[in-house]
Design a protein around this nucleic acid. Structure first.
Ligand code: ZN
Ligand code: ZN
Ligand code: ZN
Ligand code: ZN
Lengths: 174, 174
DNA sequence: TTTTGATTGTTACAATATAACATAGCTATC
DNA sequence: GATAGCTATGTTATATTGTAACAATCAAAA
């Protein structure tokens, strides 16, 4: 209820690196994995994954819907959610539970749990393996006699870039 | 999309311990803290907190609404969400992000981060301090140059009780 | 080619959450 | 006690997020 930077739908590409490479790599990995697994990487699924990879921000289902509608008049909520379900099942994206939003997985070639660092200023989300954290959780669960099925570990705060550029300029710039 | 035990609204009290003690303790702590802080623990807020503490399960906002309506014809979504906002601000409850639901805080006399163990069978949620996990996260964040504001750490799986009683009987019994 | 299962289209709706403004109730002074 | 200002609640409306159900289409396999 406090801060919520207002940004247009277009200010979403990172200024930090050549981001188109991220998207292309992700799509290529998705093609390979789907082929290996005998599941279909259909045009809708590809387009949703591409849209998700247009930034390192998590994106909401209805924002995805708005963006595919120009290309796909027939798109409806179910269109988007079905593609998201598929991408989640295949481990190609993650859901950020605390945002009700979705982001591309940076390590989709193997199943894993992830630590998500959500910047409340630039809204980028960094995925980290966090091995030490996962080990500590495993120990905790053993103590608790709890059998894990899945984890959601999400940290909200200020990323390093925002912190260093924080005096004033270029805030919320990507 | 796999399991979702169907339970009536009434099967929500734990069979494991004298649960009324949990609720009374929580209400007493809430009274004390609100008084110390000079904030008002109004009847609506108290009733919502009592309802949340009717079980160790996380409860959804609209289920709370259904339950207070008999006593409060005027109750509307905003009634519930405002009480929830207050209780969250005061650290008396936690939101389980991965369920869009709310649970009583077991350690509300001091601010803390928590590890939530969500049983997908009996739907109880256990809150643990998880100090080792928090330390590991702190180290990870230092490496990542990330300044934390808040955490959500939620594990879904099977609790010890459900695992031991799992052959058949008394499943989903509380 | 036919069949079968998976995918998509379509409609309708359920579930979760907030905005905005009006009314009522406390609390602190005068 | 009056009254002014702040907090809490009532009320209406709407925004956002997510599913159910069934029909139509497409694609892989037999
Ligand atoms: Zn990942
Ligand atoms: Zn940032
Ligand atoms: Zn707590
Ligand atoms: Zn259980």
């Amino acid at each position: 209820m406090t801060q919520q930077a207002e940004m247009t739908e277009l200010e979403h590409t990172s200024t930090i690196h050549d981001h188109s490479g991220c998207r292309e790599k992700a799509i290529h990995t998705a093609e390979k994995l789907c082929s290996q697994r005998g599941v279909r990487f259909t045009p809708i699924r590809r387009e949703i994954l591409e849209l998700i990879w247009e930034s390192h921000r998590a994106i909401k289902a209805y924002d995805l819907l708005d963006r595919i509608k120009p290309h796909m008049g027939s798109a409806k909520p179910a269109t988007v959610y079905r593609a998201l379900d598929f991408l989640l099942e295949q481990g190609l994206i993650h859901k950020v539970e605390s945002l009700n939003a979705f982001m591309g997985c940076s390590y989709s070639d193997h199943r894993h749990d992830q630590l998500l660092l959500v910047c409340v200023q630039c809204h980028e989300v960094e995925e980290r393996p966090g091995e030490r954290v996962m080990e500590a959780i495993a120990m905790e669960l053993e103590q608790a006699a709890f059998t894990m099925q899945r984890k959601a570990i999400e940290i909200h705060g200020i990323c390093g870039r925002c912190a260093s550029s924080s005096s004033s300029s270029s805030r919320a710039a990507n």
